[in-house]
Design a protein around this nucleic acid. Structure first.
Length: 269
DNA sequence: AACGAAACCTGCGCGC
DNA sequence: TGCGCGCAGGTTTCGT
């Protein structure tokens, strides 16, 4: 569940469900989920959750003096369960609270990571400090200057979280379709007006996706029981062979730097 | 320095 | 039925 709308959806629900719960115990079943730079996760025992925020695709659990940074990568999910329920396959970390509940980090592919840091270290954290602003906050001219320095295709650039944060493969495909830009167009050839279109499209698409609880595709278990609905709004992603809604030609599927890229070669020049 | 490819993992669907 | 391959919403590390 990983791009910005899905991460915000998860964070909103977790905040509602977990605020002020006190952690009584933590069971780590698969230790590699915890970053090697992390403080001992048991420092969270006896702490109460004060807030949950997000930054790009990161979820930040605020515990006063500490912050737990969580990235879901490809398949990370959180479930809230009665603490007596048996540990299921793919549950790697279990937080046990002072009522009868527990929070379970579930990750089929084990790509996700959590890292516990002191709060004052947040701005210099290796992952967080490199992050660019989200499309909602980004400065067009600043982004333009970064993009035209790049030789890589614009699709690849949009996936670079140090250039603009929050977009992943689905929304990068959708944003480039909406802004009518060919995903293969090189960064150095992108115009200021095209950067404006990209940011406008990104804000529009992400906001609509957030209000629909994100996108749920190819997923067997909805995180926290919440099924997103934005898959019903997708124009090109996973639509190869279907007709372009604008010109009725076929949507193409190609590989671009190893990622599936869907676009209309007539509308996206 | 900057780019693409491989690595990190598991499960599913498809063709043979 | 079983096997092998390709594929999946991401990021970091490794070569060139």
């Amino acid at each position: 569940m990983p791009e910005l709308p899905e991460v915000r959806t998860v964070a909103t629900i977790l905040k509602k469900e977990l605020l002020n719960k006190k952690i009584m115990d933590i069971k780590v079943i698969y230790p590699k989920i915890i970053s090697k730079d992390s403080l001992n996760i048991n420092l969270l025992i006896n702490k109460k959750l004060k807030d949950i925020k997000t930054n790009g695709k990161y979820i930040l659990f605020d515990y006063d003096n500490y912050i737990l940074i969580s990235h879901l990568r490809m398949e990370g999910k959180y479930f809230i369960k009665d603490k007596a329920k048996p540990i299921e396959k793919h549950e790697h970390i279990i937080f046990i609270f002072d009522d009868n509940t527990s929070l379970r980090y579930h990750d089929t592919r084990k790509f996700g990571r959590v890292e516990l840091i002191k709060k004052e270290e947040l701005s210099k954290n290796k992952s967080i400090s490199k992050l660019a602003l989200e499309p909602f906050d980004i400065d067009i001219n600043n982004l333009y200057q970064k993009i035209i320095k790049k030789k890589a295709p614009i699709k690849t650039i949009l996936l670079d979280q140090t250039i603009i944060s929050g977009l992943g493969n689905i929304y990068a495909n959708e944003v480039l379709y909406d802004s009518e830009i060919n995903p293969f167009k090189l960064g150095k050839d992108i115009t200021l007006n095209e950067v404006k279109k990209i940011v406008d499209s990104a804000i529009k698409i992400l906001n609509l996706a957030i209000s629909n609880n994100g996108t749920t595709i190819r997923t067997y278990t909805a995180t926290l029981g919440v099924a997103g609905n934005y898959q019903n709004f997708l124009k090109v992603h996973m639509k190869s062979g279907e007709k372009c809604p604008k010109c009725q030609n076929d949507i193409m599927k190609v590989k671009l730097n190893g990622r599936s890229t869907y676009y209309c070669k007539y509308c996206q020049k």
